[in-house]
Write a protein that binds this DNA or RNA. Structure first.
Lengths: 233, 233
DNA sequence: GAGTGGTCTAGACCACTGT
DNA sequence: CAGTGGTCTAGACCACTCA
């Protein structure tokens, strides 16, 4: 483990345990470096990573302070399955469709493949505590992941993609709302016309290639997106 | 302007204008530093800032590459007014309410003030192209901003807060959906029961103090949230 | 084995803040 | 004015990738 990373973790732990009180000054960087036997750039790198996380604030001429509020995680590219599991919601998945078919114009444009090229279509119903939660439709370039329906019932798609060697890098998301169609209402146990949260997402790997196009609907009565934003300096 | 910042801007411009093609290698850092007459840490700092923005990818043993996809801005703490203005949507605001009142329990909890303490209540209708777009309800600790209704009609709240010396730092948001009430439907020009996007937000300044609690609804037929996510390394 | 980025050091000067 | 973080330099060694 790099030294700056170890130091960042120690500081983060000290903040979380309240050993560094909110608003308290961290002590100046040079003295801190000397006390720890590190160089100042190394100490700065550790502090900077916590500033990026929103745990610390630096002010020139003043010092480095612990932020007052309890900052949670900023928005990440997260997996619904993992989020539900972390929240103790007993996630489960029913795979409704799992086939290869030619890309429509919309899917081809989103994934950056030729129209008519083979794409994997996944349709899944995601449950939490045995209640339907979301209806997930995903399109993936053919051959990217090699998974059985059984895998998809046991875990999330992102985890399968990572396990298959795909390095997820970024995603472009759009969140909106609309009324449920009759079919969606039946699947999700809502009334026709009930409000649904919609999320469209194109995910890219670290070479910039689109690796997934998702078009999902969530029961607005049981789901909302929560996230933390940081202001870019 | 710092040297690393200037270099980052030059590189970013070269990427956006296509002078650095997607997938192309940037050249190794030491040679680049020598060519530019800068030290390697300075060059690294410039490159790192673009990696953080998602424009570049580094691979040890390989080099630094331009990402293939067109990456737009990641999600920031943004102002609806500024977003609309940037999109050429002719934003306008009608102030419906602008009063000081005692904090309810919910507002007090969100802002971290005592129940019954004075808070500023703002209710605004936000238009784009003369069409109603969103109904905005904000609560602010009293005395934080000193603004006339005229100011609020001409610009966004965040810009007023910044102008008043408040340094925005982070926000906790929750996005969901629900049906429009009769009153909301009238204000927004929708039918009762139409789907609305909802957003609740608590904004913090750089000392961690809550400076704004917003509870907003958007016409789902005319608005969605779009944003870019990056995977944390 | 050659070349890359990842980490780290030991200094230096500057800009800003508060007293 | 003293003290802080912001920037910058000129080196060094290491871990990883790929031919």
């Amino acid at each position: 483990m790099p030294l700056y990373y170890q130091l960042a973790q120690q500081l983060e732990a000290a903040i979380e345990r309240g050993r560094l009180a909110p608003g308290s000054l961290l002590g100046n960087e040079i003295e801190l470096a000397g006390r720890l036997g590190l160089s100042r750039p190394t100490v700065r790198q550790a502090i900077q990573s916590l500033v990026d996380k929103g745990l610390l604030v630096r002010r020139r001429g003043v010092g480095t302070q612990v932020v007052h509020s309890q900052v949670k995680r900023p928005l990440e590219l997260s997996s619904l399955y993992d989020d539900l599991e972390a929240a103790g919601q007993r996630p489960a998945t029913r795979v409704l469709r799992h086939t290869v078919r030619p890309a429509t114009a919309e899917v081809a444009a989103a994934l950056g493949v030729a129209e008519g090229a083979d794409v994997l279509l996944l349709e899944r119903l995601r449950y939490a505590h045995d209640e339907p939660m979301a209806y997930l439709r995903n399109h993936l370039p053919a051959g990217l992941v090699d998974c059985a329906s059984a895998d998809l019932e046991a875990t999330g798609l992102y985890r399968l993609m990572r396990a298959g060697g795909t390095t997820l890098h970024s995603a472009r998301q759009s969140v909106g709302a609309r009324r449920a169609t009759g079919e969606e209402a039946v699947l999700l146990g809502e009334e026709t016309g009930a409000p649904l949260l919609t999320m469209e997402r194109v995910t890219f790997d670290d070479t910039g290639r689109a690796v997934e196009f998702g078009s999902h609907v969530y029961r607005a009565s049981r789901y909302s997106f929560e996230f933390q934003l940081l202001v870019r300096p």
